[in-house]
Design a protein around this nucleic acid. Sequence first.
DNA 1: GAAAACACAGTAAGCGCTTTCTATCCGTGG
DNA 2: CCACGGATAGAAAGCGCTTACTGTGTTTTC
Lengths: 348, 348
Amino acid sequence: MSVTLADVAARAGVSAATVSRVLNGNYPVAGATRNRVLRAVEELEYVVNGPASALAAATSDLVGVLVNDIADPFFGIMAGAVQSEIGHATRKLAIVCNTGGSPERELTYLTLLQRQRAAAVVLTGGAVEDPAHGEALAARLRRLDAAGSQVVLCGRPPLGAATAGPHPLTVTFDNRGGARRLTDHLLTLGHRRLGYLAGPAARTTTRHRLEGHRTAMAAAGLADDAERLTAHGAYDRASGYDGALELLRRDPDLTAILAANDTVALGVCAALRDRGLRIPQDVSVTGFDDLPFAVDAMPALTTVRLPLHAAGARAGRLALGREDAPPGGVATFRGDLMVRDSTAPPRR
Amino acid sequence: MSVTLADVAARAGVSAATVSRVLNGNYPVAGATRNRVLRAVEELEYVVNGPASALAAATSDLVGVLVNDIADPFFGIMAGAVQSEIGHATRKLAIVCNTGGSPERELTYLTLLQRQRAAAVVLTGGAVEDPAHGEALAARLRRLDAAGSQVVLCGRPPLGAATAGPHPLTVTFDNRGGARRLTDHLLTLGHRRLGYLAGPAARTTTRHRLEGHRTAMAAAGLADDAERLTAHGAYDRASGYDGALELLRRDPDLTAILAANDTVALGVCAALRDRGLRIPQDVSVTGFDDLPFAVDAMPALTTVRLPLHAAGARAGRLALGREDAPPGGVATFRGDLMVRDSTAPPRR
DNA sequence: GAAAACACAGTAAGCGCTTTCTATCCGTGG
DNA sequence: CCACGGATAGAAAGCGCTTACTGTGTTTTC
């Protein structure tokens, strides 16, 4: 069918073993021989048969990258960083798999990757908090580990301490701290009636951000308000729109809304505008993540910048074993407050 | 090392062949036997060795999807659609590869995919117009085709008629028509001094949109203006910002700017605002693509909606051979004009 | 009731590569 | 001048799976 090692060997007048050694460069081959082989490879347009190679060598060149939503820049940026880190280094192929946020598809993809004997797997994005899923996921990761794949979590918290087996390397964000800083910023501006529009309740990311918010609120003696003025939704624009209206219903005198992330904040802004409220004069709004569009929103969003690219690159290097594991196996990136035009002191 | 077919066979008390047949379901196996095998698979947590399977069957479960920029929703949406179409159907694994718009990396990935013996390859995004690259690319695609991979182009024009060999299936957008409609819209509103901020000159997408624009301008007797008021940039926000300033320098009396796409339009809007110009009262602005954020921009962007999801899904089905090839091997999706708040008649 | 047809299941030959072990050639030191 | 070690290259044994090709009981058919 297609050109094989043997064909190249015949053409170069050497054995298949020699061709393999030239191609993999892990064994001394005389210069003249090597050139002859390389020329034959060129002439025949030989391309290694990956599966055969993976079978014989018992490991493949594939690195899996799982994302919740490939169309969301949050994941796109991280995945792109992982991939570019991997592409830079080796002839390895980073493959991005879109789970659509579904736990089942996450498991399916992990099995598929194990089946491909992936060299490494990077899971990005917030984990689902369902305990049953957590256990199933941990089991799958353990199997991957046992099968020799390096597992790295990126942008999600480490596996719970209760989880059995080896803990995967983790690159995570300080979501609590970010949310706390954002809330403090608003409190410092003088806001007291703050609404919090959280993401899906079952996500760890959501919980951590919410915890950060509550910590700050509690420190200001506003714990009850924080409780009352929290609504949950999805990480999308429509949820932001509906959620803002809901919060306004609960308290028409709200002077600020903290959105779960930038995308949600966009929806919040749209809802406020439709209600005839000005941002930030009437209501301040904050996002989270600092995705590229945050600065272009009108007004430009005050938000927390997550170093998505740096985190993805780090995860990529860890996956390849090109960087030592951080102490405790967990690297945490903090998010910096970006104060822009969507927040201001509340009007009297 | 890990569990193999033979282990499962031993446990189920059958031969390896039978296990393989149960797993692939392409051969009659008695119900009782099948159940025994399935139970053994469960108990041993057996996961097929993909490379071995691919080697023996001479084809893998991998489908490659090439994108220019994974962090850009334009590609993210198409890639997501391809992937969901493929995931729906089969146990195939769609793998998204990020070329970063670099022709070399595009070729590298194609080789890597050929090496993996991918079942199909979908290339999304505008092609680079460099003839040398075009030839190299065509050659690579021919090789993939020869190696048995189904090749599909998505969101890029068909390979030039001059290209030798079999032409890949293509799903494309009517960029010319979209740009024409956009320009006509502005002309109808009464604009005469239109600036066109095009994408990278070397991209086919850029050229087609530009052609559409010029056709409309020429029909209105404004061919010379079109020539004079065209600037090129990248498909990003910064280019929009700089490009808008450049066009304004060329003609301070501009009443409208057509941006290469929505992202560029965002930059244009920022530049105009910084210049103290109001949109659309002083200058009308249009985008292209209708990415999700276009409707959230301030003002909401008048643009052309490209059915990215539908196109990606179609490409996915073609790649899997689950849909007949369109006549001529080319399916064209048109883009609809979405009139929003960023365009208005010019002020007197 | 014997022959032909059928429904399964097993045997075994690869798929194209990697890698261990072995063979060969050559230069070198005693 | 011969034994020896180093540097290369070849032979061959798999890696784990798929899939003709071959059985072997069990129905059907006249």
